[in-house]
Amino acid sequence: MFFILLIVLAAIGFVVQHLLGWVQIKNFTKNYTELRYKGKVAIGRRPSVFKSGTLVLLQLNGKNEIEDARYMQGVTVFSKFKPIEGLENLKLNKITGKDLTNFNKLLVKAILDAQHTLKVVESGGEIEKIPSPMMKAVKKVNNIFKSERGMKHGVRR
């Protein structure tokens, strides 16, 4: 009986998580569409598991000057986009860390990621996918096993 109750609770949790994630994606789509309608949009991301994940949308004009900026930061699916004040009229490709001293570290990393993304896209490159926290953990475990296996067989890497 306890096992069945546990499965039902896990299923309910999964459905609730899915629905709340859908609401968050809908919020992202709404904000992205609003900014995209005005011009091109640079997206910066700083995913995290234990710290706040951060996502930045920077709407740029033809001179790569930031006209509108929004960010989503938090550890839950209840995070929503908020405006960023103080970036207006700055050229994204010219921003340095000194220009971003008023912002928290995670937001700065996301803005600098948006800058990197813009450079890669403008040069015709492709944006690398950031592995999920689960995939990072799996890769670390795989590397541990590979290094242990190599040591057993006398192979050093």
Rank of each mutant, 00 (worst) to 15 (best):
T101F: 00
I84M: 07
K136M: 15
K63C: 00
I127M: 07
Q115F: 00
I127L: 13
K98A: 12
K98M: 04
V121E: 15
K105P: 06
A110T: 06
K139N: 12
S132L: 12
K82D: 08
G125F: 03
F81W: 06
K80V: 10
K140A: 15
L100V: 07
T76Q: 02
V141D: 13
K98Y: 09
T117A: 15
K139H: 11
T76L: 01
K94M: 12
E122P: 03
S79A: 15
M72N: 05
A114H: 00
F103A: 01
I127Y: 07
T96K: 00
Y71D: 09
Q73M: 13
M134P: 02
E88R: 01
N104E: 11
I127V: 13
K80D: 09
L112A: 11
K82A: 10
V141C: 08
E67M: 13
Y71E: 12
K139S: 04
V121G: 07
G125A: 07
G124S: 03
V77E: 13
A137G: 08
E122W: 03
L92N: 02
V77F: 14
K94F: 10
D113K: 02
V141N: 11
L106H: 11
H116G: 10
I95R: 03
K119D: 15
E67W: 07
A110W: 01
K119R: 03
V108Y: 00
E88P: 03
F103K: 02
R70Y: 11
K82N: 11
L107Y: 06
H116Y: 13
A114Q: 04
H116D: 14
V121D: 12
T96D: 12
E122L: 03
E65M: 01
K94H: 10
G125L: 06
A110L: 02
N89K: 11
D68I: 10
G125S: 04
N104P: 00
V120W: 08
V121F: 05
I84W: 00
E67G: 04
I66W: 06
M135L: 15
E126F: 07
V77P: 01
V75H: 11
I95W: 01
S123F: 04
Q73C: 08
A110G: 02
L92S: 05
L112N: 10
P133K: 07
K105I: 09
R70A: 02
G86A: 08
K105F: 10
G97H: 13
V108N: 00
F103V: 01
E122Q: 10
N102G: 02
K82R: 05
P133N: 12
N89C: 10
L107V: 09
Q73E: 15
L87E: 00
A114P: 02
K82I: 09
P83M: 04
I84T: 08
V121I: 10
P83E: 15
T76A: 10
D99E: 15
R70Q: 11
A137L: 14
K139E: 12
R70N: 04
A69P: 02
E126L: 10
E128K: 05
K63I: 07
K119N: 15
M134V: 15
P133T: 13
K129D: 15
G86W: 05
N89R: 09
V138H: 06
L106R: 02
I111K: 00
V77C: 11
G62T: 15
N102L: 09
E128Y: 01
H116A: 14
Q115P: 03
K140S: 12
K98Q: 12
V77S: 12
S123A: 15
V141M: 14
D99Q: 03
G74L: 09
V77M: 09
T117R: 06
K82Y: 09
N89Q: 15
L100G: 03
